[in-house]
Design a protein around this nucleic acid. Structure first.
Lengths: 193, 193
DNA sequence: TGTACATCAGTGAACGCGCGTTCACTGATGTAC
DNA sequence: TGTACATCAGTGAACGCGCGTTCACTGATGTAC
C-alpha cells in the first residue's frame, strides 16, 4: 500500500524525526534549523526546500513525536493484555517508569512541553492541543469499563505532572520516589484488580 | 525591623518583580534584559549594575515568584480556616480555580515552568528544584493529620499537571472542565469531611 | 546655611554572536530519442 | 546502448535582526567643612 518513498521524502522524514527528538529534549525554542539539519547529515541551506518555515517543521515534529510515543504505548498495552494485566496498569507503569524518567527525547511530548504549550502561537498551539486530547483519549481507552472522560483527564494530568516534577528533582532516588508514589496512588484508586 | 530601602534597592526590587511576572508569562527564554528594564521604567544599560548576568536575574525571579504565590496561598488557607473549611480544600480550590487558569503571570511558578525546569543549567535548576520542594511541602502541611509526603507528591503533581493541560486546552469551557474534574477527584479522595 | 567635591544610579551608543532565511550555484538522477 | 538535456536535491556564502553584554559619560544625591 505505502509505496517506496522517494529520496526527497526519505530526507524530509529524517529531518522531522531528528526535530521530534530535539524538540522533546530542548523545548520549542531549542530546535535550531542548522542544528537539526546537521544531525540529519545535511547543510542548513537545503532546509527551505522541505519546509516553509521553522514553525512548519515544529508543527510536523509535534505530530510525529505524539504518534511515535502513542504507538510505543499501544504496544505496551497489547503486551500487557497478553500477560492478563489491565490496560490501565500498562499505561500507568509505562508512563511512570524509571525508563521514561530519563528518556525525555523519545518519551511523551506532552510531558516534555506542556508548560510551554499555552504560550505558543496558533500554528504550534493547535497540534499541541491535539496531543493533549489524544493523551486523554488514550488514558480513557485504558480505563476499565465505564471509565469517564473526567477520570481520564485527572489521570492524564497526574501522569504528566508527576513525570515533570520527577524529572526536575532528577534521575535519582528522589525522582524515582515521586514516580513510585503516583503509580501506587493511581493504581490503588482506578485499577480494578 | 526592615529598614527603609535605598533607591538602589527599590530599583533592584522593581526589576526582579517585573522579571518574576515575565518569567511566568513567557518562560525562561522569554525574559529579555532590555524588555524587563523597559517595563521597570529604565534603560537596559543599567542592568549590570544590579545583576551579574541575565541568569542571576532569573534565579532571583524564580525565588521571588515562588515566595509571592506561596504567600498568596498562605492567605487563602488562613481565610478558609476562619470559615471552618479545611486547608486542603483551600489549596485545591485556590490552585485549580478559574482565576489561576488565566493568571499565569502571577500564579504558581512551578505550573508555569515545570516542563522547562529539567533542561536548565545548574544556576537555574537549583532554585527551580527548590520551588518544587516548597510546593510539595505546602501541600503536605495542608493535608489532614497523618498525611504523608507520598500523598503530597501525588497531589502536587496533579495540581501542576491539571493546570498546565487546562491552560493548553484554553481559558474556556474545556479548560474549566479539566479543573473541575481534578478538584472533584482530589477532594473526594483526600479531604476529610 | 552655603559651597565644593565625591559617590552613586542610570543613560545610550556600540560590539559580537547566534540564528532564521535567502539565493546563486553544483553535482546527481532521471528522461527522451 | 549510448548521448544530450532537463529536473531535482543539496551546498555554502551572505544578510538582517534580536539580544546579552560592555563602557564612557551624565545628572542627581549625599557628605565634609
Amino acid at each position: 500500500m505505502s509505496r517506496q518513498p522517494t529520496r526527497r521524502e526519505a530526507t524530509h522524514d529524517r529531518i522531522v524525526e531528528v526535530a521530534a527528538r530535539t524538540l522533546r529534549r530542548n523545548g520549542y525554542a531549542g530546535v535550531g534549523v542548522a542544528d537539526v539539519m546537521k544531525q540529519a547529515g545535511l547543510t542548513h541551506g537545503g532546509f527551505y526546500a522541505h519546509f516553509e518555515s521553522r514553525d512548519a517543521l515544529l508543527a510536523e515534529a509535534i505530530a510525529r513525536a505524539g504518534r511515535d510515543s502513542a504507538a510505543t504505548m499501544g504496544q505496551r498495552v497489547a503486551a500487557s493484555r497478553s500477560r492478563g494485566e489491565s490496560a490501565l496498569r500498562a499505561v500507568v507503569e509505562g508512563y511512570l517508569s524509571d525508563t521514561h524518567l530519563s528518556s525525555t527525547e523519545t518519551g511523551c511530548v506532552v510531558a516534555a512541553l506542556s508548560s510551554e504549550m499555552p504560550r505558543q502561537a496558533p500554528t504550534l498551539l493547535a497540534p499541541s492541543v491535539e496531543r493533549v486530547r489524544k493523551l486523554i483519549a488514550l488514558v480513557q481507552r485504558a480505563l476499565p469499563e465505564g471509565g469517564t472522560k473526567e477520570q481520564a483527564m485527572v489521570i492524564a494530568s497526574t501522569l504528566v505532572g508527576t513525570l515533570q516534577l520527577a524529572r526536575t528533582l532528577g534521575v535519582n532516588a528522589q525522582g524515582k520516589a515521586m514516580l513510585a508514589a503516583a503509580r501506587h496512588a493511581l493504581l490503588a484508586q482506578y485499577d480494578t484488580p
